[in-house]
Design a protein around this nucleic acid. Structure first.
Lengths: 94, 94
DNA sequence: TAAATTTGGTTTATATTGTAAACATGTTTA
DNA sequence: TAAACATGTTTACAATATAAACCAAATTTA
């Protein structure tokens, strides 16, 4: 049977963000933007959704004088990501 | 870098359908419905989209006296599915 | 055999989602 | 100080997914 895929993670950009954070734990907005190639607007929206779900935390600070938004994956986010990966395996010949 | 995911395949139900067809080549509507747990309406719509993309062919006939719609994956569909699977690998720790 | 039910879908309406464009706020550079 | 750049956010629109309603033919039941 096909397990349900977490709709929050089944999104190209959110999945890319979570994939990065699952790897490096923490990253700032600019880094995520460069790595994913997303537009700022789209990234901002998707980060909000991940944060609202408790999958990441978002901290706003400054690097020098410039604003800097740092995203960090939470344990729940890590778990959700791993769950998604496992679920996907039932859809794919791996 | 994160490769673009084929939006036609990045859909839970369409992916499930393609996953089945990649395995068994051909299956009828009822079988797909049972395996995926989808509603008829949703399945009907998603099958149309896969067919419109040339990923599957749809043949309408009868099994005994009852109508029977058979879906078959095309070579292009097979290729697209494999491309999607490969692209996904860059998103997941596998 | 007439009515009710089941099978096998399609169409349509709505809710959700994704995305880009426009905007806001401040900083650096010429 | 004016123009260009950095770092995001908000908003408006387009695309998508999904369920609900519908349809027609076949089958079962009374």
């Amino acid at each position: 049977m096909f397990p349900k895929l977490d709709p929050l993670l089944h999104s190209e950009l959110r999945l890319a963000v979570m994939s990065i954070l699952a790897d490096v734990t923490s990253a700032d907005f600019t880094f995520l933007k460069k790595q994913t190639g997303a537009t700022s607007g789209n990234l901002s929206v998707q980060i909000d959704k991940l944060a609202a779900a408790g999958y990441i935390t978002v901290e706003k600070g400054f690097k020098g004088k410039m604003p800097c938004t740092t995203c960090t994956i939470t344990p729940e986010g890590m778990e959700a990501f791993q769950g998604y990966v496992n679920a996907l395996k039932d859809y794919l010949p791996l």
